[in-house]
Design a protein around this nucleic acid. Structure first.
Lengths: 167, 167
DNA sequence: CGCTTGCCTGGAGCGCACTCGAACTCCGTA
DNA sequence: TACGGAGTTCGAGTGCGCTCCAGGCAAGCG
């Protein structure tokens, strides 16, 4: 995959307003490529309900994400309907990962703003991700501790029940 | 540690209403013994603000926990003030662990109800903990996946910045 | 032509986990 | 006896992350 698109989508869909920025070539590309992408890069214009069913988010939530500035400017069809691209899908997948970490939405918006601001924010973005990374490390450790406690309690109940069966 | 108390607190504190249940000998004892306990088992009657500073929860939250049934019936002094015991501290530590897992408070209340209901709920309690355990396993895996993505992005920014410095 | 379907917007509402405020009691000290 | 400090209850308020609703538009179909 690797998202090396620049080949703007050629209106395969009654839609033709394209209007994307010119810069933004390398972007991030980490390819989270768990899943290839429902449509190839030339024909990637998804309706909101398609994206909803792909991502598991509701259409409401997708619109809300856009309103609060968590999405990178979504294309519209000539009738004003949203048309999401593969790139938007990648972004949403990443946002999903961040959501799993418990990062507040405001912080994700901050990151999105940095992305929109251009390449000169690389350092700040990296710093933000690094802090998040440390957070995640800590949370994993906490969860491991919790797992130990749970195992211990489960073991306790197993013993108690074995004991009560014996007599 | 191991909480093998039965030696009820002998009013070391102008307080004397004790009034604990009779049963409940083994309890759970997993001892989460990260920290010994601020006071030994005979003299463990903490005020709400002491517990607040020990646990990091606010006094408001502690009262709220009691209201919603998340605490196992807290003693009162003769003037009606709460007196928490080491056992309450242990319970709060456990609740803290559960909170880290993202378990909804309602589910913790459910568990607390089972504990209050007596030993015949061992099976159900064990089942609940087992389900939680699986949850935690999944969350750890998710976080590991997120960590990988973060590392990848951080690496991307590192490369990008190195590249831009080179030219 | 009317009907359905899918999307649009702005704004209100909801559930959760607290968090705070008001009004009160009790206790120790000056 | 007055006062400050810590505790009490009940109920209302807050912030977050959605979630839903009303009212409207555009396209497709019988």
């Amino acid at each position: 995959m690797t998202v090396t698109q620049t080949q703007v989508q050629t209106g395969t869909d009654t839609d033709t307003d394209a209007g994307g920025e010119a810069g933004e070539l390398p972007a991030d590309l980490c390819a989270t490529a768990d899943v290839p992408h429902p449509r190839p890069d030339g024909r990637d214009r998804y309706t909101i309900s398609e994206v909803a069913s792909i991502t598991g988010l509701s259409a409401h939530t997708l619109r809300w994400y856009e309103r609060i500035g968590l999405m990178p400017h979504i294309d519209r069809s000539h009738t004003g309907q949203r048309r999401f691209t593969n790139r938007d899908l990648d972004w949403l997948a990443f946002v999903g990962k961040l959501r799993l970490t418990g990062m507040p939405v405001a912080d994700m918006v901050r990151y999105a703003e940095l992305v929109r601001a251009g390449d000169h924010t690389f350092e700040e973005r990296q710093e933000l991700l690094r802090a998040t990374r440390e957070d995640v490390r800590r949370r994993i450790d906490e969860l491991r501790g919790t797992l130990a406690v749970l195992d211990c309690k489960i073991e306790f109940y197993a013993d108690a029940r074995r004991a009560s069966e014996r007599f």
